[in-house]
């Protein structure tokens, strides 16, 4: 493990070096908010953002992705996966990526997702500022950065940059001249982690996530579903901004010659009215409450039963994105826990 301690200036020089060497994506300011985008210079990199509009999942599961090309009735796989570095991912988003890694590798390997994932070097940065609706500390994703290749933590005026994998070590090669992190700084980092793990929540989830699968078992007819869903617009925004939502639709598109074209997958969302509709207009989740409940069961029960992780990482994006102000996992799960 390489563990360097640098000034912001040295960090920027290192990032500019990475940009000169290949594609780098990083968190940046976008009209008063923050977003992941291609980084043109280190000065644009934001490590003190609160939350990005969209999670970095778009680099592994793009909103639109060509997966096959066909001509004359033959299909071939396509992928434009290419090496890149993803800089400044918050721990909760890393937790979400680690979940997707399991889901896409499990049972049937999804080579399209995994190819993009393999090509990525992911650098996590510890959270410096809380977003308005974060509750990561409540679900244990405020600091742990399992699965990342390197980790950046700001400690006072210094940055500790640490490699966690061989990929991360290669990335840190450009910092060979920087000093190793000293004991005092590392101790302060330890303290900062402790604080973040405790404090990075605006509100408290009053139920241990690992108890939710069991609690939800008895909550199918809880009034909260109908109550909340009665105001739902079925807009799908909560799906769209969620780092752990990965449902998709598949569509074909032809070129001017209709025997040639591509098959694409595009993001879909279980909150959209026709997500479960089949021929004959039969909708297996016709009521808004059915769709609303499904989303919270997926996060709290179905996905946990598949991979063992609570599938809401507490980023709070859905809370902010929902114009009806009903998409709040903390409120929903606390209600469920209350009656038990």
């Amino acid at each position: 493990m390489i563990r360097k301690q640098v000034t912001r200036q040295a960090l920027d020089a290192w990032v500019d070096g990475l940009i000169a060497a290949g594609r780098v994506v990083g968190a940046q300011k976008k009209g008063g908010r923050y977003a992941f985008d291609d980084l043109r210079r280190a000065a644009d990199l934001c490590l003190d953002y609160d939350v990005t509009i969209l999670p970095p999942k778009k680099y592994f599961l793009p909103p639109k992705e060509d997966i096959l090309r066909f001509s004359d009735g033959r299909y071939e796989s396509v992928s434009d996966a290419a090496p890149f570095t993803l800089l400044g991912v918050h721990p909760y988003d890393m937790a979400a990526i680690a979940q997707m890694d399991k889901l896409f590798a499990q049972d049937n390997r999804d080579e399209h997702y995994l190819a993009r994932r393999e090509q990525a070097t992911v650098v996590v940065c510890d959270i410096e500022r809380m977003s308005p609706n974060i509750f990561a500390a409540s679900v244990g994703t405020a600091t742990a950065a399992d699965g990342c290749d390197a980790l950046i933590t700001r400690v006072g005026r210094a940055y500790v940059i640490e490699s966690h994998t061989a990929k991360g070590e290669r990335l840190l090669a450009g910092l060979a001249g920087a000093p190793d992190a000293d004991a005092v700084t590392l101790a302060r980092r330890e303290q900062l982690w402790e604080d973040n793990a405790r404090l990075m929540s605006r509100r408290e989830l009053r139920v241990e996530p690992r108890r939710l699968p069991r609690l939800l078992e008895d909550a199918y007819d809880h009034p909260v579903w109908e109550e909340k869903a009665s105001q739902c617009f079925a807009c799908g925004s909560c799906n769209l901004v969620c780092p752990t939502c990965y449902c998709f639709d598949v569509q074909d598109d032809v070129e001017w010659d209709p025997s040639r074209g591509v098959r694409r997958r595009v993001w879909d969302g279980c909150m959209l009215t026709d997500f479960a509709t089949v021929a004959g207009k039969h909708n297996f989740r016709k009521n808004r409450a059915d769709r609303y409940r499904h989303r919270y069961y997926r996060k709290g029960k179905y996905v946990p039963e598949k991979i063992g992780d609570f599938s809401c990482v507490g980023c709070g994006r859905c809370v902010s994105a929902c114009v009806a102000r009903i998409a709040d996992p903390v409120e929903v799960y606390n209600r469920i826990a209350e009656v038990q």
């Binding site: 997966i67 299909y75 992928s79 290419a82 390997r109 080579e111």
Partner: peptide
Amino acid sequence: MCGGAGKPEAKDIYRPEPA
């Protein structure tokens, strides 16, 4: 796959076989 990923096509769970 074409496009540099260099994986055997046979593994792509989404690729139909011709019929």
